[in-house]
Design a protein around this nucleic acid. Sequence first.
DNA 1: ATAAATAGTTAAGCGGGCTGAATTATAAAG
DNA 2: CTTTATAATTCAGCCCGCTTAACTATTTAT
Lengths: 152, 152
Amino acid sequence: MEPDTFVSTLQEWIEVSMRSSMRHFIRHARESGLSMSHLVALFHILRTGSCGVTDLGDHLGVTSAASSQMLERLVLQGLILRTEDPNDRRVKQITLTDKGCRVLEEGIHARQGWMDDLAQTLSDSEKETITMGLNILIDKIKNLKQPIESES
Amino acid sequence: MEPDTFVSTLQEWIEVSMRSSMRHFIRHARESGLSMSHLVALFHILRTGSCGVTDLGDHLGVTSAASSQMLERLVLQGLILRTEDPNDRRVKQITLTDKGCRVLEEGIHARQGWMDDLAQTLSDSEKETITMGLNILIDKIKNLKQPIESES
DNA sequence: ATAAATAGTTAAGCGGGCTGAATTATAAAG
DNA sequence: CTTTATAATTCAGCCCGCTTAACTATTTAT
């Protein structure tokens, strides 16, 4: 198979699917009164379960001062909890509140709507072909990401 | 096929691929001194070829004043051109300069790196399966998007 | 020809988000 | 015990992006 065909198809799909996802997601964010930075932060907290202030700042590419200030706003909005780490009382453990979880779930759901619509236009055999292909991709990308994550 | 399997697989793929794309893309944006809004705007101009100030604002979900101000900065940075529409002298035609095109291409290229890495871990038959599936998706999503675009 | 609608710009004001520097509290190293 | 390093916070100051409102220029409708 032509070396370019695969990558360019993948690229086109990413472009078009990201556009769909982002549009709905951004709209939901605006309605919730959250900025993109807030959402990226909340997702990072969701994924890690719990993280420190400086960790989060590093992940977002900002100073710990900026991270601290943003977290303060998120605490005021009742989206996260900031508790002391009993092992090292210098660090704060950042976790999502129930409200924070709910907001994120709504965001994910908003992003999912067009996928349901898309699913309805597909036959079972088409779905099977696509699912098979995507599972390969998901599997491979996870193996690909390990070395990258540890490097950063 | 289970109704949920397809959508949840699709959802997982979108989540993981968006994360990869966004990470590289955002890093490139910061290095170029462009904000997300700038990039979204530039991509919209690239896609439409040429658009008006208010159009762009509507697409971004902001007022025409905000759009105008942002475009002013992009003009100062030499990324776009703002010329008068000869058919209706009230409207301005916004187009990308060569520099603007170049910056976007670099952004796309930054986003594409991990796809090349991914491609190298796949056999030809896997690539074929995936390409087939993605092409179905791309085809269907394009048909799906027409009514949504016209509705907004 | 006049009135109304439309496209874009400008200015004032608000809040977000960032940085660097100073501060406090805790932990680790000498 | 003292020094040094680390985690988080606070503050001042800056720029960005947004809104509303006022304004100019052009087009369309009556």
